[in-house]
């Protein structure tokens, strides 16, 4: 069962990754990255159980924290002086 959860997490990571690549605007990317971050928290927890040493969950706590910091930073440092929406030519070159 734990293996199935791990597979589901990896698949979801890839899906979120595709959304982060496609954009099309800044907000979609942050949303995808935020979700990816939650998946990494779960990844650490599940990997601990999968490989038989679930003692390192401290890392998961830290991931949840820095994920939050990253989202706040992106919002605080971008949307005041930059056009953040896709209409102003954000996206792939």
């Amino acid at each position: 069962m734990i293996f199935a959860v791990m597979a589901a997490l990896l698949v979801t990571m890839v899906l979120a990754l595709v959304r982060a690549f496609l954009g099309p605007d800044l907000y979609n990317r942050i949303l995808a990255i935020n979700m990816f971050g939650t998946k990494t928290v779960l990844f650490v927890a599940v990997a601990g159980f999968l490989f038989g040493r679930p003692d390192f969950l401290d890392i998961g706590i830290l991931y949840a924290l820095v994920n939050f910091v990253a989202v706040v930073a992106v919002l605080r440092l971008t949307h005041h002086d930059e056009p953040a929406t896709g209409r102003n030519g954000d996206g792939h070159s």
């Binding site: 990571m13 990754l17 982060a20 690549f21 954009g23 800044l26 990317r29 942050i30 990255i33 990816f36 971050g37 990494t40 990844f43 650490v44 990997a47 390192f56 890392i59 991931y63 994920n67 990253a70 992106v74 971008t78 930059e82 954000d90 996206g91 792939h92 070159s93």
Partner: peptide
């Protein structure tokens, strides 16, 4: 490496770090 909007590139760098950290756990 293909992205010219650096904000988006920076955000992907954050994602890159998260994956790296997962690999370190592994």
């Amino acid at each position: 490496s293909g992205m010219r909007t650096l904000y988006a590139a920076t955000m992907l760098t954050a994602l890159f770090s998260l994956v790296t950290a997962c690999l370190f756990v592994l």
